[in-house]
Design a protein around this nucleic acid. Structure first.
Lengths: 139, 139
DNA sequence: ATCCTACATTGGACATTGTCTAAGTCACGA
DNA sequence: TCGTGACTTAGACAATGTCCAATGTAGGAT
């Protein structure tokens, strides 16, 4: 996602310090942060950045398809920068961390026509839950 | 789920008017309500029921495994009384309503061992998204 | 049938997450 | 370098959910 900023500029984005920092935070680790975690990490580098800007920027990245919004537990949404690779999520039921995983076959095809009830089905998300090795050891 | 109250009594539940009403609301329709929708419908029959009680009761039903908590959009969680039948969800991206659907095969088997990263995977939820016939007409 | 008491309910304060607005600021094309 | 329209900001507000102390009550004990 190193050329993300270039892609965004190509789409008419103004390149501000705040947007750069938010993009860098997402680009860094491979965990999926909540909006407030992104804000905290962004504020490390740019202390005066506001919560509203982080929310705005994340929302824009999502509508542009650069980032995926994940809500696994009804608490804070998490933001997944790995939007260009088809993948699903593996969530630890104890500590909440999320891993990206890849499944076999196309999950969409598992839903037969009569089970679609007239919906125009366009998307499917698969979420596996279990205990991660770390929490398993600690128990 | 007509014998739900019996099962709960067997587990040491006190049978109060409030709990009965919450259970009846869930038992009724086949849509999945949010906590506040459950509260509104419960209040139709028992006007003095409080939000806290509805939240408490729903939480208890979830821990007892009688009801499933569904959070599809990071907004309000919805409560699915159909906990004893294996099923997945079809969500309208526009109006948020949820339908239960049944898929072919076991989605768990689509996650190969090397993609499990040491997790003890115990559960999988599949959520299909699309536009429901009603929203499709209205557009 | 009545009483006791542990469990349940209530209302309201509080917490968390997210949205909106009006005013000020700044990126970038001309 | 300037002007303008897009961007950012702080803080109020909204939606959802949690917690607590005071009060009420279901159901076993008598």
């Amino acid at each position: 996602m190193s050329d993300l900023l270039e892609r965004l500029r190509g789409r008419g984005w103004r390149l501000t310090a705040q947007r750069r920092v938010v993009a860098e935070v997402l680009d860094g680790d491979h965990v999926h942060y909540t909006a407030d975690e992104v804000h905290a990490r962004a504020a490390d580098r740019l202390p005066e950045i506001s919560r509203a800007t982080v929310y705005n920027t994340l929302g824009e990245l999502v509508s542009l398809g650069e980032v995926i919004e994940v809500s696994t537990d009804g608490r804070a949404k998490r933001y997944d920068p790995n939007a260009h690779h088809d993948h699903q999520h593996l969530v630890c039921s104890r500590c909440g961390t999320i891993r990206d995983v890849h499944v076999q076959g196309d999950p969409l095809s598992a839903l037969p026509e009569p089970e679609r009830y007239g919906f125009q089905v366009s998307e499917v998300t698969v979420t596996y839950r279990g205990i991660c090795p770390h929490c398993s050891d600690a128990s």
